[in-house]
Design a protein around this nucleic acid. Structure first.
Lengths: 361, 361
DNA sequence: CTGTTAGCGCGTTCAT
DNA sequence: ATGAACGCGCTAACAG
């Protein structure tokens, strides 16, 4: 690929003139301009962004690192982020951490080396992320996405996970449920899960109930059947499950069906995130919806504002976005009589526990 | 952020020595090495990848452009692509075209300016893509993803869309359906859709049936109810719908439910892609599954092979990957008696057309 | 209006 | 084992 010098030689002028033409930085005589344009066309010249970056000490590139792209909530946020970046003439480098803090840190290292102008991160744990410290040390503009701020002044685009989980838990309680279990993806991999559990526990405590410990599932496991089984036995079994995210919730609903439980008649299930998919399944998923695409967009806007050092961006750095408790068929009233659920227990169950239909509740 | 010169000054040596240390290019005396390491630690020095790129004329960055990230099939392929790239020490620039050839071309321009070492593309139409021509002109290593090759020698990672659609159509025919309609996303935005229609039409022709024209839907429209309505009236209505992709198929199934049709008893629906979501809905989606993540991985591997000019990569450039006809509940036997579907017609339908249960077929 | 030149950060040849 | 110097492609400051 041709460089600026070849174009200049071909056009019979200096490289400075070519540069000026390309950047429209100064008026050029008509004849020279024509020769330059011809030369550019002939050589297929395209200014090297890397040469420019070296000069200007900025790359017009942003980085974004998310745990995964297969979770629609992250894919959506990346989509929004990238759209805004493009609109502003910025490129986007992407990395997925696969919920691994080591990969996360490595990705940040690489991005800093690539001299991104700023980066957006959904880290595993904002409180213990080495990546965050590295970025701060370098003074790179950055914004957290989905994570809550780990310190005052940190830019973060997120909902208040504690409040959201508390509100959702209240909604579950309002349906008459008293034994509710919180199912989480691995806590180590998601500070969001932990915050949501805190909101859950707070709501239960406020209702005078003792919050049970969360049940940790590997939410990358497509078939959590075995892990769920112990929850279904006995008359003290839970009647509702609060899953820390929607992907987990959908997996759990599938498992429950296979294990012979009906949702929500035997067991209510709610999630967190508000992915579209939740509205396409039957029953629809009751969940806390957060505006993932808009969050990606906002993260990018704040990042760009920081890069241009527009000070107003920092003022509302950590203001929370609104969430929405989205009603769905997966949350029903608590059964009046509870019995164990299980493949071999259908007859017994049918004899002893007339199921509570929604119409009768 | 410190540069190599500051480190050299601090360590009391030349920048050449620092460079050699960082790159392990030559032996360094123990004392100097210690001073350099101290200086690096102290300054937080990180070699500038952009300086390196300028020197070495390669960026260790790949570009990938896909129509969207919200369609899981693309998100998965990007995920696989990125994972392989990372493993090989490459960064990934991402762009989404939103099914717009103009944005697509613009993205490619930007990537070329950014001096990516190679790029993977899912273009709207490989036959008419200006982007492809641009890339070829520049001689950049590239590989098509999901698109089939537009010319011999072009690298492409894809399934044989025509054959896959033909096989799926045969499966529909085998269930006794005779009036089948092909629903496509906007043809202009997807050459895959067009190829799949060709396979569909070929299968019908071979069965002695006249293939109806495809019905074009805007598959970004979440509620295709209105567009679908005309298909449901009359006794000559179709009994099966072949949707050009899974996202469309799920939207169509949702619309059918709202319009009072049961799937598959009143209407069978099949899709194309094999997204996970299709297995979580009820009924499960019958579809052609393609290994999206593996395709992204393979595309990246081929790209890297091309960049390193491993010649063997080119030999099987356009070999097709295997697809899988995935059975699912959304495809059932054709009803023996067909009647119009509609909100106001429930009674009439129930009187005149006893539904064909799967057990009785 | 145009050309000359310096320098962005780095790797690398050529000396020593 | 180390240093000096050049050049990768480009822009900007200065000269004319």
């Amino acid at each position: 690929m041709a460089n600026i010098k070849e174009v200049a030689d071909l056009a019979g002028c200096s490289i400075a003139t070519v540069s000026r033409h390309v950047n429209g930085a100064a008026p050029i005589s008509v004849e020279v301009r024509a020769r330059i344009e011809a030369a550019i066309l002939q050589t297929g010249y395209r200014p090297s962004e890397i040469g420019r970056s070296l000069k200007r000490q900025a790359t017009r590139t942003l980085g974004i690192v998310v745990p995964s792209l297969t979770n629609p909530v992250f894919a959506l946020s990346v989509s929004g982020f990238q759209a805004v970046a493009r609109r502003h003439g910025y490129n986007v480098l992407i990395a997925t951490s696969d919920y691994d803090p080591a990969i996360e840190a490595e990705a940040v290292e690489t991005f800093l080396g690539q001299s991104v102008d700023g980066l957006a991160l959904t880290v595993c744990d904002s409180l213990s992320s080495p990546a965050l410290a590295t970025i701060d040390a370098g003074g790179k503009p950055n914004v957290l996405l989905f994570n809550q701020a780990d310190m005052p002044g940190r830019q973060a685009v997120t909902v208040d996970n504690i409040e959201a989980a508390r509100a959702m838990t209240d909604a579950i309680l309002a349906e008459g449920h008293r034994r509710i279990v919180f199912l989480a993806g691995r806590f180590a991999a998601s500070d969001r899960s932990r915050l949501r559990y805190r909101g859950f526990a707070a709501a239960l405590a406020q209702a005078g109930l003792k919050p049970p410990l969360p049940l940790e599932l590997d939410f990358l496991d497509a078939t959590p059947d075995a892990a769920l089984q112990p929850l279904l036995g006995g008359e003290n079994r839970p009647t509702a499950l609060f899953c820390s995210n929607d992907v987990l919730a959908l997996g759990v609903i599938g498992a429950l069906k296979r294990l012979g439980a009906r949702v929500p008649d035997d067991m209510s299930v709610v999630g967190f995130d508000g992915i579209d998919l939740g509205q396409m399944v039957e029953p629809t998923l009751c969940t806390v919806s957060q505006p993932a695409r808009a969050m990606g967009e906002l993260a990018c806007e704040r990042l760009l504002a920081t890069i241009r050092s527009t000070p107003e961006a920092a003022t509302d750095a950590a203001r929370f976005l609104a969430f929405d408790i989205r009603r769905g068929g997966s949350l029903g009233p608590a059964p009046r009589v509870v019995a164990a659920i299980g493949a071999g227990q259908d007859l017994q169950r049918d004899n002893t526990t007339p199921h509570n239909k929604r119409e009768t509740a």
